[in-house]
Design a binder for these strands. Structure first.
Length: 882
RNA sequence: GGGCGAUUAGCUCAGCUGGGAGAGCGCUACCCUUACAAGGUAGAUGUCGGCGGUUCGAUCCCGUCAUCGCCCACCA
């Protein structure tokens, strides 16, 4: 059968994914390791399209899962999807607006929710197909959506228990109000961005006096809600005014002048207007001084009746109007440019207005403390460890979590109020009557919970909690705590911290033993990939062009303990070439497979021991680096082995045997090739599942199952052959020397040469004699003579010196002696420089006294080898010069 | 303002507990050599950000400065 010259990723990908999925290969099964390994996939948004961040998520998680599955762990990779409250509702609102010209308020809540579900059915979850294209191997039967009734059950259960414990409470507070979404959002959802603004200086008159207080503000329109003027009680300039009244311009409100240490005498003018209704700090001052809190805004951000003539106008218009009026009143002072940080909603990108409103809060104080302790005690470990700081920094100063959102799409808050007696209580089930007065008219709180509330429960709600039957079906006891959480650092606060708190609170057990924080994917210039910059690389495009394996390998090779992964599509092309290289290595060995024994032969020669030993080293390193999430190391180890050992040398030195007549040798070599190539495929499989499964199907014995469930290679001490590795390095040096000489004297690669090699290294001499056929083949030589160093050096020749050999290429006709001498002198210089490095150390008494023996010995050995090389070069130079 | 991180070949980055620096891509020259031109062979390139210190020895440890990035806090 003739295989095509290039690997066709598309046909392999669709073929194997279906076989794996239909064959239930993704399902957890008890394996030889006898231990569970579980990863809960961070649920992508139902509105999501696969981007490179997801692709990286999938790649690293799936590599771990496939690795552990092959090692015989009972692996669960649990997929899911997030309802993404705000994003989804916004998407559907936009669609309805476009198609029907209506807003959500033109529908009842039930009607609109029905539209969202309909949207979800039609358009949601495209990302699932995209995850499959990446080759993700989760057990799809475990799939869960955060709005499924099972998830809702968990949400209600947790909410009610926290409510009954008094940790969830309702309060009138200043919250971050998103005027576009018309909902409160949590502190974590506010992004601070630098904005160019202005400092407006305003004069406030002091009542019954001629004094005018100059006050600086960036938001002059908020003066309509001022309820005090504050100065620092230690401020000699103003503290005598404390207790007097000031008059707020325009609205002419009389407000007290108060003293508060919060006021910074250096900042601004040293006087502060206090607006408790629209500033977090002012709100605190207001509480301390029992000030009135005035709300001047409507929920859409426009001014309310306190806005006077600007009622129903935007804050922007109001600001203009207020300034103009102040100018007319001659109460406007300097205006200075000012750069400051302003909070924006991370979804809507609009300026966040602090607004007083009644919201549900969760007191996280104790939960946060436990979450901190668990990490301090290593119950959960971060990789890389540095990210613990980010986690701690948030949890050590926790603010109560604003849980309620004024949206429709989400888990409705399970708090009920009796319309008759006003009793308020929380209940997991929708109650039919009031527990106190039995009245049947009951209202449920209209708000829904922050999306992250249900996400916080994800590690256990997906495993069936709280229903005992479901928990046993889903093997809760086996898989909780989960083994690893893989995610990006941007959601350590949002998600990791919340899962930790919720897991510890509800189950007394951490939700995951390890957290691997991977890099953020950026473009090749290190910029964040974004739609507006147009610098995004679409994973699906890349799969289309280069194949899923190439994309996965690129992402894995770029993933270690780094915080940025700058991705260039050229790198993906590079790894596509690597995948193709594997394909062609297979094309080479394939015709000889029939001769191969399924087992490793008892007899092994130099090169066979060498390749097995190299493979063994790589196997060891890959196993180790995978455990530490150093995918970059794993990938470069395998890459180097495949290219530089297996393809460049082992296949090359095998050609003369495979094309030769010695049947026994042929079988032996074919067996080793097959054995080692199968191991390579297994090592590669976690990163490049498709091509490896494809090639495995040609290589496997009939009794063997698919590669996805084969044993992962393990280190085997009986396959360590150090001496063969050393000798092979010398062998490679000789070949390289020949190629070098050929290039130096401009002899084409096809011209067969005769060479003479001189060496005093007895094992190497034997080795070179054993392998003359290989040498001839690779070096394009017609003859090779191996001799003891010393006499008989050929006269008319060019030569090169390696660690243990002198390689001579005798030349007929005239050779350019000067050229040859020049080359040798260059080599001499280089070697001398290197030698002196070591020689100086050996002369250094302090070094000899202080350095550890092993270092001294190594230096001695290097010096000896270089000294011999120097001697050889000098001798040969003398000959050429004479 | 507080914290974290980075600075190594043209680009992207490795470099584990200190023993004289590596990879991939790119570049140059020569090769369509019977697995692979998505390939092969040979090659060039670094004051390891600056300055001090510890040490026999520093890319690695300490101090300091510079530049860049991120997170948190702060709408006077």
């Amino acid at each position: 059968m003739e295989l095509p010259k290039t690997y066709d990723s598309k046909s392999a990908e669709s073929k194997w994914y279906e076989i794996w999925e239909k064959g239930s290969y993704f399902k957890p099964k008890k394996g030889k390791a006898g231990k569970p390994f579980s990863i809960i996939m961070p649920p992508p948004n139902v509105t999501g399209q696969l981007h490179m961040g997801h692709a990286l998520d999938i790649t690293t998680q799936d590599a771990l899962i496939r690795f552990k599955r092959m090692k015989g762990f009972e692996t669960l990779f649990l997929p899911g999807m997030d309802h993404a409250g705000i994003s989804t509702q916004v998407v559907v609102e936009k669609k309805v607006k476009q198609e029907e010209g209506k807003s959500r308020h033109d529908f009842t809540r039930e009607e609109f929710l029905e539209k969202i579900w309909q949207w979800k059915k039609e358009y949601g979850g495209i990302i699932i197909k995209q995850q499959k294209a990446m080759g993700a191997s989760p057990d799809w039967d475990y799939f869960m959506f955060t709005m499924d009734k099972e998830a809702n059950e968990a949400v209600n259960k947790v909410f009610v228990s926290l409510y009954n414990e008094g940790l969830i409470y309702q309060d009138d507070r200043l919250v971050n109000w998103d005027t576009v979404l018309q909902s409160a959002i949590s502190d974590a959802e506010v992004e601070y961005k630098e904005v160019k603004g202005k400092f407006y200086h305003i004069f406030y008159k002091v009542k019954d006096s001629d004094i005018k207080l100059e006050i600086a503000t960036t938001r002059p329109e908020t003066l309509l809600g001022d309820t005090a003027i504050a100065v620092n009680p230690n401020d000699e300039r103003w503290n005598s005014l404390i207790g007097k009244k000031a008059i707020v311009p325009i609205c002419n409100r009389e407000v007290p002048i108060i003293g508060d240490e919060y006021v910074d005498m250096e900042k601004g003018t040293g006087c502060l207007k206090v607006t408790p209704g629209h500033d977090f700090n002012d709100f605190e001052i207001g509480k301390r001084h029992k000030l009135e809190t005035i709300n001047i805004l409507n929920l859409d951000g426009s001014l309310n009746e306190y806005g006077l003539e600007w009622a129903n106008k935007s804050t922007k218009e109001t600001r203009k109007g207020v300034l103009k009026k102040l100018e007319e009143l001659e109460q406007l002072g300097d205006i200075k440019d000012h750069i400051h940080q302003v909070g924006h909603g991370d979804r809507s990108k609009t300026v966040i207005e602090p607004i007083l409103s009644k919201q549900w809060f969760l007191n996280v104080h104790d939960m946060a403390e436990r979450a901190v302790n668990a990490v301090e005690k290593d119950e959960t470990k971060f990789y890389p460890k540095g990210w613990e700081n980010t986690y701690f920094s948030w949890l050590r100063e926790p603010k109560d979590w604003c849980l309620s959102r004024q949206l429709w799409w989400g888990h409705q808050i399970p708090v009920f109020t009796c319309k008759s007696c006003n009793k308020q209580w929380a209940s997991e089930q929708h109650p039919s009557s009031c527990p106190d007065c039995s009245h049947q008219e009951i209202a449920q709180d209209p708000d829904v919970l922050d999306t992250w509330f249900s996400s916080g429960l994800w590690p256990f709600s997906t495993l069936g909690w709280p229903d005992p039957e479901r928990m046993s079906e889903r093997k809760f006891d086996t898989f909780y705590s989960t083994s690893v959480l893989v995610t990006g650092f941007d959601i350590i606060f949002f998600w990791v911290a919340r899962m930790m708190m919720m897991g510890l609170k509800n189950l007394d057990k951490v939700p995951f033993e390890k957290v691997y924080i991977h890099a953020i994917v950026r473009d090749k210039e290190g910029r964040k990939m974004s739609k507006s910059l147009g610098n995004g690389i679409d994973p699906l495009d890349m799969i289309e062009h280069y194949g899923a394996d190439a994309l996965r390998y690129t992402l894995a090779a770029g993933s270690g303990y780094n915080r940025n992964l700058n991705l260039d599509s050229e790198r993906i092309a590079g790894y596509r070439n690597f995948i193709n290289k594997i394909w062609n290595a297979f094309r080479f060995i394939q015709p000889f497979l029939n001769d191969a024994d399924p087992k490793l032969p008892d007899q092994l020669n130099h090169h066979e021991r060498w390749i097995l030993s190299e493979l063994n080293m790589v196997t060891k390193q890959v196993n180790e680096s995978m455990e530490e999430f150093r995918f970059d190391d794993s990938c470069s180890q395998i890459y180097g082995f495949v290219y530089d050992k297996f393809c460049s040398w082992f296949i090359e030195v095998s050609k003369n045997i495979l094309h030769g007549d010695d049947q026994d040798l042929k079988i032996q070599r074919a067996s080793v090739l097959k054995f080692s190539f199968k191991k390579v495929l297994a090592l590669l499989h976690p990163f490049a599942p498709y091509i490896t499964e494809e090639l495995w199907s040609y290589l496997k014995d009939p009794s063997e199952d698919l590669l996805i469930v084969q044993d992962f290679p393990e280190y085997d001490s009986s396959l360590d052959f150090k001496q063969d590795q050393d000798l092979m390095n010398n062998f490679i040096e000789v070949i390289t020397a020949v190629r070098n000489l050929r290039a130096n004297v401009n002899i084409g690669p096809k011209e067969p040469l005769a060479i003479e090699v001189f060496t005093d290294h007895n094992e190497l001499k034997q080795y070179l004699n054993d392998e003359t056929e290989a040498l001839k083949d690779i070096g394009r030589l017609k003859e090779i003579t191996v001799k003891t160093k010393g006499l008989d050096r050929p006269k008319k020749s060019v030569m090169s010196v390696t660690s243990f050999t002198e390689v001579f290429l005798p030349l007929e006709g005239v050779i350019d002696l000067n050229d040859q001498i020049g080359r040798l002198e260059k080599s001499l210089q280089k070697t001398e420089k290197e030698y002196s490095k070591y020689a100086n150390k050996l002369k250094n008494e302090k070094f000899m006294k202080n350095a550890p023996d092993e270092v001294v010995n190594e230096v001695k050995q290097n010096a000896a080898e270089l000294s011999e090389k120097l001697k050889a070069i000098r001798e040969n130079l003398d000959i050429f010069k004479s």
